[in-house]
Design a protein around this nucleic acid. Structure first.
Lengths: 188, 188
DNA sequence: CTGTCGATGTCAGTAACTGTCATCAACGCT
DNA sequence: AGCGTTGATGACAGTTACTGACATCGACAG
């Protein structure tokens, strides 16, 4: 018999999302989250660096997926097609996650601090993508710009995918966004 | 004779940049900044919403410049050319600001909280750009993607412009970044 | 049976940020 | 000249995010 209930980290993440949804991020204290999870405030900060981070536990996983997909693309593929392949691979793991994503995104969108954190996670993703593209022999600034463009497509596609009423799967939305970007940068 | 020294806001911004540069952002307290400026901590928070915002006083001005330049582009110009024109206009105002920009950027790059704030300012810029493009009749998602692409170019170009040893003016660097983006999204 | 380990609790402390009230030069009005 | 208002600042108390240090005690290896 264990001394404590297992899965402290997951309990904290769940409690945080619930409370942020109900009362709003700002009117929720860390002490309340910890109490809801049957823990203390100090333990919360042992699992998450700060009050925002608890909503971004999956971002490392997402980043790994992107990098892995880039690494597995055919060697001959053009940079933009590598990114497209990564977007397709990533889209798959979001199937069945839309209800959770919507709840989480509503919380993030409602608070500036959380939007900041989301942006730096996307920037980190972009940096990892840049590095993965460079490993394929793509030079700067093409690598950075391809990565930034890919993240821009991901952002726009994701926004539409979580939008209320939207029911199409993620990949077609990403493909549309990518096509729109290509059309726009083509010049006229 | 005035009751207080004038330009409290500017004094605070100057003191903050100096102290952040010398000791680092985290080891500087708001009380120290205020004291250096001959004011109190409470007054600091009357001028700036938080400890980060004091480094981003100019971002509204930059945003206005972007929007204004988009509005003044020839009506027949393609979206990407409108953004290019805006980048050129914006580049002009950075002449003579490179030493200041380098000092400020060094502080921001060294701290995650400040990078977050910088990212949300760029996101706000992107949103304003999107709106300005929509006012020209450009539909979604082309407007968003053009704006995001423009900001990506600005980011890459700016990064090179502030890099140590770089002496070329801003606009050629922006032009190069834009050309690289076009090359990359063209598909190869 | 015993010693180490690891997750948690407890507690004190710092600093960012906020609400509230007081102060007092400047300024306009009579 | 007198006087009420205004606006920028100071003073001060309070909340809460976050950190460091030390204590606790089941699990587990030997």
């Amino acid at each position: 018999m264990s001394r404590w209930e297992p899965n402290a980290r997951e309990r904290l993440a769940k409690a945080a999302l619930e409370l942020y949804s109900e009362r709003g991020y700002e009117r929720t204290t860390v002490a309340e989250i910890a109490k809801q999870a049957g823990l203390t405030e100090r333990t919360f900060f042992r699992h998450y660096a700060d009050k925002r981070e608890v909503l971004f536990d999956g971002s490392n996983h997402l980043q790994d997926l992107f990098v892995k997909a880039v690494g597995e693309a055919p060697p001959s593929a053009a940079p933009i097609d590598v990114v497209a392949a990564a977007l397709e691979a990533v889209s798959e793991v979001f199937v069945d996650r839309r209800p959770f994503a919507r709840k989480r995104q509503a919380v993030i969108t409602a608070n500036a601090e959380l939007r900041e954190r989301e942006l730096i996670k996307l920037a980190s993703l972009s940096a990892a993508l840049t590095e993965a593209l460079r490993l394929r022999g793509i030079a700067e600034p093409a690598a950075s710009l391809t990565a930034e463009a890919g993240i821009a497509v991901f952002r726009v596609g994701f926004e539409r995918w979580v939008a209320p009423g939207e029911e199409r799967p993620m990949w077609p939305l990403m493909r549309e966004a990518l096509a729109a970007l290509k059309a726009v940068t083509a010049g006229a």
